[in-house]
């Protein structure tokens, strides 16, 4: 008797699991890539599933992995913190667009110094990360911070040890403002760092900096807010001092000339504008120009369209910056409806 009962229950469980798995397989949007936008993508996905019943299976394995997977067509979309160059897009038959904006923020830890009290500019930041400015009371830093009494202490440099979009945007900015950095180190997701210790992930960079008196690091803005870190204000391209806020990131994005950037190959670092944060960063989505599975891609585009329209509040709650409306319109009317096509040559997004 008991055996029969158990068999019954087992059968029901198996059937339920099967039904669940097959429905999940049928409906889920699949994507892989960048870790930086993962929190907001998963929050969007949660809300989207509640509304439409369609889930998102996003593996945050890193931008490099996302690019590889979309090239191999194992996922519907890839995500990358660094935009692909127009040549690479053409070579692999890919289209990309920016989906969300964030900011990279230099943080410090000096006893008695409050968030926003310190001010730095790009060339000085490059010199610190090159190992040329090694003490906090260096004349260059003193000149930038006349009202702060800087201690005679070594600067302990912290950087990312894992390859990351954060590092890409940070190093890209330093390359733009310091010819010497561009020459000796350059831009990349992983670098040959002249000085400092490497920590794995934003969390570890944040905690290393918080633990180390005299430490300096760079993290995504969300980590600054969550950990109440001592962020530094920066001097932007126009010579104005700005603090890292959603507004200053958005200012950088609004001033960016997306329209004239082929393939949206535009890096938000060092943008002009009075209020622009100098190290703003967009995160990108990649899909194939000629899609294999038009239904799946259409579903993915519907999700991204929904995120553009209804996901703004959620993004802001997580300290990300949604794309400006004019850029969304540009993406949907030109890229989506003109460049992404199914096998018969019909546009996927109508």
């Amino acid at each position: 008797m008991r055996l029969i009962k158990r068999a019954w229950l087992g059968g029901i469980a198996a059937a339920v699991t099967l039904a669940f798995v097959s429905s999940a397989l049928a409906a889920d949007i699949s994507g892989a890539g960048a870790t930086f936008p993962y929190p907001v993508y998963s929050k969007w996905a949660d809300a989207y599933k509640k509304e439409t019943g369609i889930g998102l299976n996003y593996q945050s394995i890193g931008s490099g992995g996302g690019i590889k997977q979309i090239e191999a067509r194992t996922v519907t979309f890839g995500a990358s913190d660094a935009p692909l160059k127009p040549d690479d897009l053409a070579k692999n038959g890919l289209v990309q667009w920016p989906q969300i904006i964030g900011g990279v923020v230099p943080v410090a830890n000096l006893k008695g110094i409050k968030p926003g009290e310190l001010r730095i500019d790009g060339p000085a930041l490059a010199k610190i990360y090159l190992g040329e400015i090694t003490r906090w009371n260096d004349p260059v830093l003193a000149r930038l911070n006349p009202q702060v009494k800087l201690p005679d202490m070594p600067i302990l440099v912290v950087h990312r040890s894992d390859g990351s979009g954060t590092t890409f945007n940070f190093s890209n900015y330093l390359s733009a403002v310091s010819p010497e950095w561009n020459d000796k180190v350059g831009t990349g997701t992983a670098l040959e760092w002249p000085v400092g210790v490497g920590a794995k992930g934003n969390e570890a960079v944040a905690s290393m900096t918080i633990q180390t008196n005299g430490g300096i690091g760079y993290v995504e803005y969300a980590y600054v807010v969550q950990n109440h870190m001592t962020y530094m204000r920066m001097i932007n391209k126009d010579g104005h001092t700005v603090a890292p806020t959603a507004e200053s990131f958005q200012a950088a994005a609004a001033n960016a000339d997306w329209k004239n950037a082929p393939g949206y190959y535009l890096i938000l670092g060092n943008q002009p504008g009075k209020a622009s944060w100098p190290i703003a960063a967009a995160s990108f989505i990649l899909v194939h120009r000629q899609v294999g599975d038009a239904v799946a891609v259409h579903q993915a585009l519907k999700f991204f369209d929904w995120s553009f329209r209804k996901g703004q509040k959620m993004a802001e709650a997580l300290d990300y910056v949604p794309m400006p409306a004019n850029v969304v319109k540009l993406i949907e009317t030109t890229t989506w409806s003109q460049e992404i096509k199914d096998k018969a040559g019909n546009p996927v997004w109508k």
């Binding site: 931008s63 690019i67 040890s161 894992d162 992983a190």
Partner: peptide, 18 residues
């Protein structure tokens, strides 16, 4: 001083090795 090991390098860098 800070350094690295073989397995730490692989764990750190494999995901973004483009």
């Amino acid at each position: 001083a800070p350094g690295t090991t073989i397995s730490a390098s692989i764990a750190n860098e494999f995901t973004e090795a483009s």
